[in-house]
């Protein structure tokens, strides 16, 4: 589990949207930074928003709440929202909260770009 307070989020433009790749734990201290990046990405009204969680070893319910907020916005604006590269602990919390079927979750980035 990473201990830094700041959450770094890489942003990459793709042909039909954007990929966000947060780096580090997403908890109460850091979920606001992810929310800010997601909100900014959604303001551009992309056709596709990919959240690559390959560098998020840990997420709590604050992080889940941030994802659900983004999901609600994407549904309202007909934006494809795809989550990929879940590490075991993050996949586990999504499963416990029964959210794996609510989000479009795919294995990797290639699948996310085709979904």
């Amino acid at each position: 589990m990473s201990g830094a307070t700041e959450l770094v989020v890489d942003v990459e433009a793709i042909s039909d949207g954007v990929i966000l790749r947060p780096k580090g734990d997403v908890d109460m201290a850091r979920s606001p930074a992810l929310r800010t990046k997601l909100t900014a990405a959604l303001k551009g009204n992309p056709a596709r928003l990919v959240l690559d969680l390959s560098e998020v070893p840990y997420m709590d319910s604050s992080g889940l709440a941030t994802l659900i907020e983004a999901l609600q916005t994407t549904r309202k604006n007909k934006i494809k929202f795809i989550v990929c590269n879940l590490l075991p602990r993050v996949r586990s919390i999504l499963e416990i909260a029964r959210l794996t079927t609510v989000f479009t979750v795919v294995e990797n980035r290639d699948e996310a770009l085709k979904a």
Binding site: D60, S61, L64, A65, T66, I68, E69, Q72, I93, I96, A97, R98, L99, V102
Partner: peptide, 13 residues
Amino acid sequence: LDDIRPGGLGVHL
């Protein structure tokens, strides 16, 4: 859990 909205998950977890 069927009520999909932000928040309210902590105690359940």
